[in-house]
Design a protein around this nucleic acid. Sequence first.
DNA 1: CTGAAAGCGCTAACAG
DNA 2: CTGTTAGCGCTTTCAG
Lengths: 353, 353
Amino acid sequence: MPPPPSRRPTIRDVARSAGVSVTTVSHTFSGNGKVAPATQQRVRTAAHDLGYRPDVIAQGLRSNRLGVIALVARQLDALRPELLFDVDYFARFAGAAAVASLAEGLGLMLVSDPTGPRAAGAALASDGFIVTEPVVDDPLVEMLTNAGIPFVTVGEIPGVAPETSDVPLVDIESGRLTTLALDHLWESGARRIALVTGTDRNEWNLRSASVYQRWARFRRMPPALVHAPEALDDEGGRRAAITLLDGSDAGGVPDGIYALTSNHALGILAELTVRGLRVPDDVRIVAGSDAESLRTSQTTISSIDLRPDELARRAVQALAARLDDRPPPDHGDAPVGRLLVRASSRPRSPDQR
Amino acid sequence: MPPPPSRRPTIRDVARSAGVSVTTVSHTFSGNGKVAPATQQRVRTAAHDLGYRPDVIAQGLRSNRLGVIALVARQLDALRPELLFDVDYFARFAGAAAVASLAEGLGLMLVSDPTGPRAAGAALASDGFIVTEPVVDDPLVEMLTNAGIPFVTVGEIPGVAPETSDVPLVDIESGRLTTLALDHLWESGARRIALVTGTDRNEWNLRSASVYQRWARFRRMPPALVHAPEALDDEGGRRAAITLLDGSDAGGVPDGIYALTSNHALGILAELTVRGLRVPDDVRIVAGSDAESLRTSQTTISSIDLRPDELARRAVQALAARLDDRPPPDHGDAPVGRLLVRASSRPRSPDQR
DNA sequence: CTGAAAGCGCTAACAG
DNA sequence: CTGTTAGCGCTTTCAG
């Protein structure tokens, strides 16, 4: 048996080897036309013997679809890629998205900023995009809309009512989760609850803040609201804590803090500890995003687990459906995110800590 | 101005609009042939006006290259993608790889298991692969080798001498780093140092174990070696600790533990704490992989920072070079991984802890 | 049921 | 310097 030519076998090689036309080969693989079972068998054997695999690129050229979707990782800063904040959220989301994509027969591309000038061609070749946490006037959203590229968002596009837009949306439930966290803090005994958000203008930050304001009014509690850049990590949390503790503008030191970013929560805990404040006895803390580090910190920190894995799965499925012009999957309205109570907000439980 | 046809403009549209041939357009964009500057300008303007962007797929068809490389995330288990272990390592590696890829004009695809039967076509369409931590008789390595697909590994292929193979390798320096960790434990006062590895049969686990054996012999220290599955996370660490503390086979309880997986280290710390052993006074701990959670645990844990960001960058560059038939980049032999000393192995320092 | 042939958008000889 | 043209591997009418 002569060594096959080094180039990979094409559909023609298979056709020749099976004594049929390329059409027949194409049809047996795509299941499109009608091919006699016997012929199919011959084709498959020939293909197998030759080690033939349809060329995805050529298919893509015909169909204008590559079978790849892109996940935009906002946190990826080209200058300091080692400083991914909210590592857990990102990793879990990306991991689950990759697996879910595979299940849909799609590849998952990781992309930082496709709007930038250096946007690699490949980045744009994707069939669709998953945009997590779009921000106000998001240039990426604008670009995708203009280019007519299908995309789904995780979290609403701020300022765009979901009913208005036909962009599929995976709901992160900022409203419900904020209330959940605040109610929990209240029940665990806090009466002056402060909110620490990030500075990105996405739904998570914005809606949490507005729900918090309303909630505070309802509870007749003077609101204490601090913003710290996500990228500052625990240092941002430390600063927020300092602001809250020193600037006693809201009439007194808070005895409960809801910090949206996990690393902010860690920084807050650190600052409180330094000042000799006890958690949860003096101040209760809840983080708005779960992370491994919250499970293992000196005092373990309660958090909202956004369930990035589930969000990712839904996003992929919604996008895949949109790409195939299928109706969007119905995930029912079972809530996704949940509260994880840990030591930082547990009323009193002698066995803990 | 009539609305442009809804299909995206092709190179021919540009050619027509600029009054030149398609070749000229192609050349001005690829910079391949020679085109008069004036013509170039006309072409560019026309292209810009039409909103033309070269079609990556068509380019790929011609060149047999898509401009996409794949990162195989071994930890992605389709059944439980939310259980990524070593989240930090993965996230940092993937993030840095995505950014580095972009800098090389490549997209980065996340892929779980391309050898499986369900392997989506797109997963295989990548121009090359980055395989982290290949294992003994790795089916993926075999598959890529057979298919003639270029790849680089991060960490040696166990059982294959790097000189023998022409697969580009990014060295994780397991040997040096193991010695570094063990020497550090020794210097911080430990005299019975145990090693806890994972169970994957990759270079990191295997080489660390063998270097440890040699090191123990050299120090005339009875070796105590325990293996725990990576996927068990902190529970694996807890079990390893139990084994080490109860099964006093090696003559006595260890006073120093080097645990390769960060979550194992956390579990070990937890178990030691439960038993009333003080860290670092009674037992010193070093983790073989850094993570945010080690920085914020009850007692902060020293670790080997593998510098996943740097490893990823090198892997991408090596692969990109290989794809272009360029010589592999020379990263010199400056060491990459480093030791981060934290409370869990700090001799005595009243300000810490 | 099967085959011939026309492209998908682009590049690269090869001629002018 | 610029244009003509022949494909890359595949799908898809449209005829047999």
